[in-house]
Each structure stands twice: as structure tokens, then as C-alpha cells.
Design a protein around this nucleic acid. Structure first.
Lengths: 208, 208
DNA sequence: ACAGTTATTAGAATCTGTTCTACTTTGCCA
DNA sequence: TGGCAAAGTAGAACAGATTCTAATAACTGT
């Protein structure tokens, strides 16, 4: 799996990696269905016992698909996790759109968004675990971190953000992710997270 | 891998978990040596090919120890990774002690420390990548974040820190870890990290 | 020195992600 | 309709972390 002769370059895995037919790029209806069934089966298993319960053999079985097929759609377990998790983020974004944060300050609105996301994640703890970890683990660029940062900038009223503003929003996002991780490790309660996010947001987005 | 929805009750794995003699807690000289040999072998392997190259069988072999013995000292690979990382942090701490940061402001000293640590990690990219990723993914408590936070508080002259100060230093530490990760993904240069750390530190530790 | 506990060992065995093989089915089109 | 490439299948095979076993060595207190 490793390339012994070229040590410097990390093995890029295909970013897309979610559909067969490499040549055409087309996805038939039945393939779409199959992919959906797989992701659903994976999500169902993960929301119970977490990534551990989401074993590739089991997912394949639950989705009524051969192991080889599962691997054709998702070349690694991580790809599957990422797929499951993408759906969750979509949910958050549309929730924010439906009911935008109303706090007076940018920091307040950011805290609102982050804590709403936190609550959403806490509803499916095992799934949340998978989400956060995959967000961090991903080898290549994933939309997650940037999407969260973008979301924060948007609710802060910074559609045309300076580089410094992007850095600050990004910092807040990374603090949030870290706090979530600590929660997953059982080292934070919801209240503690809120407190810490408020403190950090108050400083980082002070003059937004 | 459970979430404390209200109270924080993680299934604690023994945090220590690094020496035999559960009952006595004593560690004989030969045990100490053995442990040291194991960690050295692990570090040597990891600094070449990353965690992948640091296979438990290989580590045991290199350390001249049976696989079972390795597992007696380090119940899981993660425990071994943590041990390796701890040594790195020791190095950083003693380096800081030897040559304390001299900047005028607390934020400046914190930036100094973090960038010094960054340079240290960049010297062994494979090791850094492996270790940081594994630590972030670790299920259980790791000394990493807390030690870094403690270090930051110390160089900020906050030996008796308030809760808010701990939160702020912790936030800065998590921003740093995140930037490090981005660097490992090839999305940050050293200069960019420095810039972002300066921005974040300037806000977070403003009135330290 | 002796009995009993604890540490160590070699190696087999287990578990789960991933890969491989040898077929069979499906979709497509000339 | 015949045929070919892609997609799917069942199941074996492989890899590396972790666990288990049975036996031996080292250390302990008496």
C-alpha cells in the first residue's frame, strides 16, 4: 500500500471515490439506489454502536450487497463514514437557513450556530463521534472545516471577509471541533462547551 | 465511546497503563529499562514510516521482547503512541526551560513556544503526522492537549490561572493543533501557521 | 532453599479492514 | 440477437491489532 521509493508524498486517495463507472462518470438509477441503501445501512449501524458497529461486512449484509460491491462504491471505511457525515452537515445548513440565529452580536450569532450544531450532534452521539473524527482524519481536503468556517462568517455578516477574519472564524471553528472531541471523550458537558465557546467567540469575533 | 449527555462518565481506561505490577505499582529497574527500550524502538520505527511502520510485532521484535510483554506494558498501540509523544513533549519542555521565550507580552511568548514546537515537529514529519493524527483520534484521555495548555499558561505567567484563562490557553492550543493538521495536509506553510497563531494569540491572550 | 506469585515467552488464535479470484448478471449497442 | 464491458456476487485470502494459552523464568517473603 505504501510507496517505498517515494517517501515524501502521502498516498493521495481519490477524493470522490463514491461511484463506480470510472470511465463514464454516469450513475444509473439503480446505482444511485444502491449507494443510498449502503449509506442508510451504514448510518443505521453507526447511530447505534458507532463506527465500531459499522463493520464493512455488516454494512454490506444490511444493504443487501456483496462486500466487493461495497468496496467498489466506498474504497475504504473512511469514505463511507464521510458519506454518512455529509448528510448530517446538509441538515445543519438547512436548519440554519430555516431559522437563522438572532443574537445581536456576531459573536452571539456564532455561538448560537455552534451550540445548535452541538445539540444536533449530541442527539446521535455515536454518529457524532464518526463525524468529528472523520472531519479531522480526512487526508485530503474535505468540505467540512471550510463549510463550518463559511457558516460562521456568514452569520457574522462577513460575506466579503478579510484574511484575518477568515483566520479568526477558522480558529473558532477549530476550538469548537476540539471541544466536541473532548465531549466525545467524556471530558466536557454541554454547559462546559457552551461556556468555552462563548469565551473564545467573545475574543475571536470581538470586533466583527 | 459514550457521550455524557448530562454527567461525564466515560469508560475510563486506566490512564497510567504503562507498567506491570498492578498491585504494587512499583517498577523495578529492569522493567524501567524494558519500557524504555520499547518506547525507543517504537519511536525509531515511527520516525521512519509513521504509525504504519510501527507495527506491534515489529516493535516487540526490535525491543527484544515478546509480543505479550509489549502488550503488558502498553495495552494498546495507542498507549504506545502516547508514550512516544510524551517523550517529545518532554523534550520541548526542557528546551523551553533551557531557553525561555523572551517576548514582552504573554501572547508573544506563547507564539514563540508554539512555533518552536512546530519547528520541532516539522523536523520529523512522518512521526509528527502519525502521532498527531493518532492522538486526535484517540478515544481516551491523552496528555497532549493538557500539557500544551499548561505550558502556555506557564510562559504566560499564569501559574494560578482562573478558569477563563485555562479556557483561553486551551483554545489557543487547539487552534495550534488544527493548524498543524492543516500543515500535514499540505494546506499551510510555516509562515501561514505563524501568522494565524499570532492572530489567534493576540486575541485570546490579549490581557494576560 | 521453597512455595507462590508475577513477569516473560513463543506461538497459535481471533477479529476486522481490505484485497483477490473466479464466476455470473446486467446494460448496451451494432 | 450475440457479444462485450462494467457491475455484482460469494467466498477465500491477507494483514495487522489484539487476545489467549501453556509453559518457563524471575522475584518474593519466610
Amino acid at each position: 500500500m505504501r510507496i517505498p521509493t517515494a517517501p515524501a508524498v502521502p498516498e493521495q486517495r481519490a477524493v470522490d471515490s463514491e461511484a463506480p463507472s470510472v470511465s463514464s462518470g454516469v450513475r444509473t438509477r439503480s446505482q444511485h439506489q444502491r449507494r443510498k441503501r449502503i449509506v442508510q445501512a451504514a448510518a443505521a449501524l453507526a447511530s447505534r454502536g458507532g463506527v465500531e458497529a459499522m463493520q464493512m461486512r455488516t454494512v454490506a449484509e444490511r444493504a443487501g450487497v456483496a462486500l466487493g460491491t461495497l468496496y467498489r462504491y466506498f474504497p475504504s471505511k473512511m469514505d463511507l463514514v464521510v458519506a454518512v457525515v455529509s448528510e448530517e452537515i446538509d441538515l445543519l445548513e438547512s436548519s440554519i437557513e430555516r431559522r437563522p440565529p438572532s443574537a445581536a452580536t456576531a459573536a452571539g450569532r456564532a455561538v448560537d450556530v455552534l451550540m445548535r450544531a452541538t445539540r444536533g450532534l449530541m442527539r446521535e452521539p455515536e454518529l457524532a463521534d464518526a463525524l468529528i473524527r472523520s472531519l479531522i482524519l480526512a487526508e485530503v481536503e474535505t468540505p467540512f472545516g471550510d463549510r463550518m468556517t463559511g457558516l460562521l462568517l456568514r452569520v457574522s455578516g462577513r460575506d466579503q471577509a478579510t484574511e484575518e477574519e477568515v483566520a479568526l472564524a477558522g480558529s473558532l471553528a477549530s476550538v469548537w471541533v476540539h471541544e466536541l472531541l473532548e465531549m466525545l471523550r467524556g471530558r466536557r458537558t454541554y454547559e462546559q462547551i457552551q461556556q468555552r465557546i462563548e469565551i473564545a467567540a467573545g475574543r475571536l469575533l470581538a470586533d466583527f
